[in-house]
Amino acid sequence: MNRSLFIFIGVIFTVVFSLSGLVLVPDWQFSEIGQFKTADGTLYPQPLTGPPDAGRHVYMDLGCIYCHTQQVRPEGFGADIERGWGRRRTVMRDYMFDPINLTGTMRTGPDLANIGARQPSRTWQYLHLYNPVITSPGSIMPPHPFLFTVGADAAPPPDAVALPKEWQTPTAKYIIPNSRGRFLVDYLMSLDKSVDLPEAQ
């Protein structure tokens, strides 16, 4: 009869064993590392606050992680660095304040770990989000028109982004990002892991 007790103990033991070994030990090991002090005395990384943090929620709820990663693999392993996705590999320290893990596992689209440094043009980001084919012909990223309002007034408001000529229609000559669109681009702009870290070789 004690077979069921034996299986019970064995089953619980194996799973607790692996949870400790794979998850809890790395967490405990990392707790001794902490932020990195750069040459000019600032600490890297910093937790996100304000608009970029709001943008992180937009990134999450639109499911960007299903096509984009935020991690750079080391030199000689894949071609992430040669493709210009980052200057160095990413390490644990880069993500120490992430409240949700967004490193991703799929590259239907390119990596975004350093998109803030790689593509700092907000205009590009807005046009690309409104309809990716404008800036990237052949792209299969879905358009996100719901992050924008469109307009065709002769005198566009200051935050309007003009559409290129062939994408204009009588009712849409420029686009205005709504708050979620702006937050999302704020978040993308904040993605910059170019600080050199000693462990990232």
């Binding site: 043009s121 590009w124 800036t135």
Partner: peptide, 13 residues
Amino acid sequence: QCHQVNGAGIPGA
């Protein structure tokens, strides 16, 4: 991303 692989850019942008 902006200037395109063929160097033609995006007209108007």
